[in-house]
Design a binder for these strands. Structure first.
Lengths: 203, 203
DNA sequence: ACCTGCCCCTGACATCCGTCACGGGTGCGC
DNA sequence: GCGCACCCGTGACGGATGTCAGGGGCAGGT
């Protein structure tokens, strides 16, 4: 039986190397490529002939969800497994929509990772069970595209004027979108709204 | 020569297990304990007879800096190496003040971790060189204790009224502290001030 | 053709926020 | 003792913010 060829993508070199050490202990797994940026995944996977890509979400260049979509689009035979720190319901949904075959949070015991890789390689879907329930209940974002845009800018604590400049809108419109987003998130200030939206994976 | 006995503390089980796999590859290193909470470090290190503790900063119970201080206080012969995601200057300073022997960010190549452990065990100090410069230049926090308190509450985007309630102060006083903190951080809003203070490791 | 939802903008309002000036209290080092 | 820094509070000011009521435009579904 042929070994499963893996690509690891994580911006933290130490974690990347440690995961490689962990997975290389398995006889049927082989790490054939490692990258630290999301926009290098497709090229590296193609060159190394990877079967499965392990993708972290938080990465420079392109995040793991974009990378998963790119792999699904350009390398149809290659499966992707998203491995992330944050078990946000919206992340799971977005990962599945991006064509990922699996979703694992970094809280899971390390012994299960190799099995998750094997299942994904076999064509099965791997989803963190506790997260799946949350995702089904309240996963989809109630925010409109513009509301998500202004909330993204609001994450840094920017003023209305700067958000308006960044999104090329009138300050009044920005305030309307923010007010709407605050209502939808059940919060009282834009900072809280941005915070909860991020925790839900909506932005 | 005796092997170096290691304790790993990281709240993410997957990362913890992967680091264990990485370090167990070295003949002179042995992982003898793993914990996922900061407040279990001392007991586990004592029971397992660890020589060196690898501590992540972000952990429930007690963070890695508190854990390092506890180890230094209660297990004088045991050295600690702080391994963290965020290379914030204030973190390095606080780690050293807590009695840690080393400070490594998760961006460093995985091949260097084992060497860092050996150096720490040998009594040397290990510090990420790029971070050391930053820390010397602008590491110490300009914030007073109260300013740090209100900024911590402001991180979530709370209103002045809620911050005041949480810190048991008058709303006016809270606004004064916030205004002062905004001035010291060179920002324009409390959200930005809280953000930069966190990035500097001041809170 | 009509309704609905989202987008963009304007204007007005009450409230909140950031700033400043001020006074009084404490503890520390010179 | 004196200055100094920090703490806590008050009061007032201008500007920012969140909310509401409108108006118009543009797509998709009935």
């Amino acid at each position: 039986m042929a070994v499963i060829r893996l690509l690891l993508a994580d911006d933290q070199a130490l974690v990347r190397g440690a995961l490689a050490a962990l997975l290389d202990l398995e006889n049927d797994l082989e790490v054939v490529a490692q990258v630290g940026r999301g926009d290098e995944v497709v090229a590296a996977a193609r060159e190394a002939g990877a079967d499965v890509c392990l993708l972290d979400i938080e990465m420079p260049g392109a995040d793991g969800l974009e990378a998963a979509a790119a792999v699904a689009r350009e390398l149809p035979g290659v499966r992707t497994l998203v491995v992330t720190t944050f078990g946000r319901p919206g992340y799971l949904r977005r990962a599945m929509e991006a064509g990922a075959s699996g979703f694992v949070v970094k809280d899971t015991p390390s012994a299960e990772l190799a099995d998750a890789v094997r299942r994904v390689h076999a064509g099965l879907r791997v989803v963190d069970p506790t997260l799946a329930a949350e995702s089904l209940s309240g996963g989809t974002s109630p925010l409109t595209a513009r509301e998500a845009d202004v909330l993204r800018e609001a994450l840094t604590g920017a003023t209305v004027a700067r958000i308006a400049a960044a999104v090329h809108l009138s300050p009044g419109t920005v305030r309307n979108h923010l007010s709407s987003a605050i209502g939808k998130t059940g919060t009282a200030t834009r900072a809280e709204a941005a915070r909860t939206a991020r925790e839900q994976g909506w932005i």
